[in-house]
Design a protein around this nucleic acid. Structure first.
Lengths: 374, 374
DNA sequence: CGGCATGATGTGAGCGTTAACACTGTGCGG
DNA sequence: CCGCACAGTGTTAACGCTCACATCATGCCG
């Protein structure tokens, strides 16, 4: 019994498991028989079992870390697995366990920094938990597209869903989901009945607004995101709160669509305003466009006007001038989402859990006015 | 037969399909029997078959668009499917067909614009072709991490792999892949034996370099990407080619790591150089950092020095000044990748196909010197 | 007007895995 | 020293689907 691969009975009569146990000696399709080394048909459990001189169930036990397997046996099986380069068939496993170990992510335009980073965080966390992630990004959000994506993923038998689609319509589509499938919404607005993970947008907006008021701005203008984006609204809310709390006038917010172009447009429109001393832009990309417009008009930042953004994209520190902004830890958002989702998958009920990730004000030259170390 | 759901024999004796056909009348697990409307156990084919008064095979035929099904029968089955909200079990299907309809994407840091956009293109194209996409992003690239990711996806039984990992080590890891699984490399360097999709980096670099020479620059400096990145090398190559072709001196390239910070550093280092009139930066993010450094040093762009980047990120048009750059159509890259992969999955052999996406020079103010319409 | 191709359907056998149970042989308390 | 718990193993039956084949009407050709 020196060679563990030979089995307990020695060579020659290997694996006298039960006569007709092996399914027709395998491979009724491709010719070949001898499910050995170079067979093109991937090895299955039975192959491993035969080689190790055990039953396929024991192989299964080894694979699933069942405690009652003698160490020697385990070794033998492990060696056989290596020898035939066995990998278990996830479809068969999923079929019998009714678990796909896959979670689905529906996301709006994964090209954007926020969604992309969140997806990244989700994927990392899911992997650690032993889950796969399949994505479905939709280019335009409406009830139909979101439903399509959800159906698609449902067909794929995902065990849970993470929806990164912070628009009102998406939230509604999710709410209409046939219950039974665990769901977590990212930035899904105020608790619509399923768990939500979000950054405290309003708090971030309050902080940055207060920051500019503290620097002496008589009031703070706001370039908002699209009305149908929940986070855009939260930021408007936070900004407004801060102004009201400070007892200063609340200017009418301008609307952009998150793009640099729209920020540029807003910058041109706003630059004529009387008493313009500070602008809070709802994201960094628009802030970039606004800075551009100000630059063209000869408005100096921060000397003439303070500017702040939101997101802290990696480039923000190198804008001209470096941009004060609110950092959102998207990776944390992704991680928390998976946490909530897995808990829901495990416990069944997940209720109205709500994970809020704290934002963080990052002060740079666009409000600080002096060279700050990068 | 007015009601299609009643079946051909009228109510009462619904679905006399064969006595013992139905598997133990379903649901030996959860109590309940009567696998009807509100049963919590999801409907299976047999349920649909019973309701429609046909065999499960006919249901399968309808689902798979088999031609020999009478229209009336098809209708009946379709109605039954709707009635019980049936969705087929992908695991069972995958088990028997040996096809998962899933392709795996291994990518380096999907937070970056390039990988994220490529992933997006891949997902869109895959979906249209009826495939699912599961991702595995690795944060650091080396043989081990890439292998881990590949193993993971192999276990998931993906039908093919797209590797977005334009580093030498990643390319090597892919080359070591156990053959048999179709693979397409994105930016995988010079045809290492499997299909590659890439943007013609060298050509893009040549174009932008020539552009700056044409504007009168005596030569063009270069801030390159990391040495182990294949595309970084291609860009160096193209830049060098253009300089040599023009018969001008070739300065030593500086190295960055794609980040704005490294571009900033390079900008500070290079700004003292004598005769500095033009810089080609290997990507837009580094170019942003360089612009920042130049700005701080009082070097005017483009008046004193021309600057160009590579990628055309959405922000590039709003840098200060708007950045001349080379646009890479990442979405097209994603699409082409799927094309190549699916062909490989279908035909078996995919050979050394090579899809090259043309880059496009985008001239903006950082070299043009005048206000250009955005 | 018989037979045979063809369309429309049903039947049975797997696909590769896990769950449930049945079966051994030990070691230990009574 | 018997039997009983229990670790270690094998056996069997699903899981829900598709494939290959069997079956049954048709309809058309010879």
């Amino acid at each position: 019994m020196a060679n563990p691969l030979t089995g307990p009975s020695g060579p020659g009569d290997r694996a006298v498991v039960g006569g007709s146990t092996d399914p027709a000696d395998r491979a009724p399709h491709r010719g070949g028989g001898r499910a050995a080394h170079m067979s093109h048909r991937p090895a299955v459990m039975a192959d491993v079992a035969r080689l190790a001189g055990v039953s396929h169930q024991t192989v299964s036990r080894v694979l699933n870390q069942h405690p009652s397997v003698r160490p020697a046996t385990r070794e033998r099986v492990l060696a056989a697995i290596q020898a035939v380069d066995y990998r278990r068939n996830s479809a068969a496993r999923a079929l019998v366990t009714r678990r796909s170990h896959t979670i689905g992510v529906v996301s709006f335009d994964t090209t954007l920094y926020g969604p992309a980073s969140t997806l990244y965080g989700v994927e990392q966390a899911a992997r650690q938990a032993g889950y796969f992630v399949t994505v479905a990004s939709v280019k335009t959000i409406n009830r139909r597209t979101v439903h399509e994506a959800l159906d698609r993923l449902a067909e794929q038998a995902v065990e849970g869903l993470i929806v990164i689609a912070p628009q009102r319509e998406a939230a509604e589509a999710v709410a209409e989901l046939p219950r039974g499938l665990p769901v977590v919404a990212v930035e899904g607005g105020s608790g619509p009945g399923f768990p939500v993970v979000c950054v405290d947008q309003a708090e971030g907006a309050r902080q940055v607004t207060r920051h500019m008021l503290d620097l002496g701005a008589p009031t703070v203008w706001h370039i908002a995101g699209p009305v149908d984006w929940l986070e855009a609204e939260s930021r408007v809310q936070g900004w407004q709160d801060a102004l009201v709390a400070a007892g200063v006038p609340v200017p009418e917010p301008l609307r952009g669509d998150w793009s640099p172009a729209s920020g540029y447009g807003a910058g041109r429109r706003i630059s004529g305003q009387d008493g313009l001393r500070a602008v809070f832009v709802a994201n960094d990309q628009m802030a970039l466009g606004l800075l551009r417009a100000f630059h063209e008009r000869g408005i100096r930042v921060p000397d003439d006007v303070l500017v702040a953004g939101f997101d802290d994209v990696p480039e923000a520190a190198y804008f001209t001038p470096p941009l004060t902004t609110v950092r959102q830890d998207f990776t944390a958002v992704g991680r928390r989402s998976i946490d909530l989702l897995l808990r829901q998958i495990a416990d069944g009920a997940g209720g109205d859990d709500r994970a809020v990730v704290a934002p963080r004000l990052i002060v740079r030259q666009s409000t600080a006015g002096r060279e700050v170390p990068l």
